[in-house]
Design a binder for these strands. Structure first.
Length: 286
DNA sequence: AAGAGGCCCTGATAGC
DNA sequence: TGCTATCAGGGCCTCT
């Protein structure tokens, strides 16, 4: 599901609901995720009070007292569900009420005094990890590139990083060491706005295009957060959960439809780059 | 050493 | 209805 904007939305609504709450109990129903859940994680979590909820890139970070942390990565299909006791339905962005809670693939349940938080992940590409110190946390994120909205993601940084790069710009923007937080949807959109062909090699990106990339990375990500993220396919029946940014897509999922630029007569094409769907207008994106 | 591709997994949907 | 094929918001690992 989530790229940076979606995780940001999850962070915000989680913060409203679970800040300063204490974990009473933990149920591990299935340890098999991308990485196996640590065997003794239950022992570490029980009795801990949540002191903050933050995000780095596509990772959600739950902070506890005494400098320990629980990191969530949602992979392609990971979701969090807040379930109130006694059927009180919470219609809060990015949470599902108990009616829409999937029955299968609930991997972890965290119990609080009057609600529980469930991590569900059918494809198991996500994972969670308990972190024991600030040092370990910093180390974990050490190799990650700046985020699109970070001031370090600037002209000089891109200029330097793109120099001599044979990799195409699409794969570069998907590379979390290059810039972190973007995924397939937002990279497609950013390249369309920037009028850059996804196949263009890094070293061929001139100064003008670098500025475009920065400008539209910022705009697309900011707007997506404002709109509550993108909801494409999961849990169609759920209500009150949907992000709205999918209505703003200019190229993603728009194969064979007309280019939205007024003077352009092109059609959106779908091609494959490194096994991922790539949407572009060949007339606009050079 | 950088870059391309395979692969991990389940579920939804389209086409026959 | 039921089969098969294809596709999906990610990223680690291996091979060249």
């Amino acid at each position: 599901m989530p790229e940076l904007p979606e995780v940001e939305i999850i962070k915000k609504s989680l913060k409203k609901n679970v800040l300063f709450k204490k974990i009473d109990n933990v149920l591990i129903k299935n340890r098999n995720l991308r990485f196996k859940i640590q065997r003794n994680i239950k022992k570490f979590l029980i009795g801990k009070k949540i002191t903050n909820i933050t995000r780095r890139s596509k990772y959600l970070i739950v902070h506890f007292e005494q400098d320990c942390f629980l990191i969530f990565h949602f992979g392609m299909s990971g979701t969090l569900h807040l379930i109130r006791n006694k059927n009180i339905h919470q219609t809060n962005l990015s949470f599902y009420n108990s009616k829409t809670l999937p029955k299968k693939h609930n991997h972890v349940e965290l119990f609080f005094s009057n609600f529980k938080l469930i991590y569900n992940d059918p494809r198991r590409f996500g994972y969670l990890k308990f972190i024991f110190s600030f040092n370990e946390l910093n180390f974990f994120f050490n190799n990650m590139g700046p985020e699109p909205l970070d001031s370090n993601f600037n002209f000089n940084y891109l200029k330097k990083k793109l120099k001599g790069k044979k990799k195409n710009i699409k794969n570069l923007l998907l590379d979390q060491k290059f810039v972190s937080g973007l995924g397939n949807i937002y990279v497609n959109e950013i390249l369309f706005y920037s009028k850059i062909n996804p196949h263009l090699k890094g070293k061929k990106i001139d100064d003008f295009k670098i500025k475009k990339i920065i400008k539209y990375s910022n705009e697309v990500v900011e707007k997506a957060i404002k709109k509550g993220g993108s909801t494409i396919r999961d849990f169609k029946n759920s209500k009150g959960e949907m992000g709205l940014f999918q209505n703003e897509f200019k190229v993603y999922n728009r194969e064979n439809r007309n280019c939205v630029r007024k003077k352009c007569s092109g059609k959106i094409e779908r091609v494959i780059i490194s096994n991922r769907s790539t949407f572009l207008c060949k007339y606009c994106q050079k």
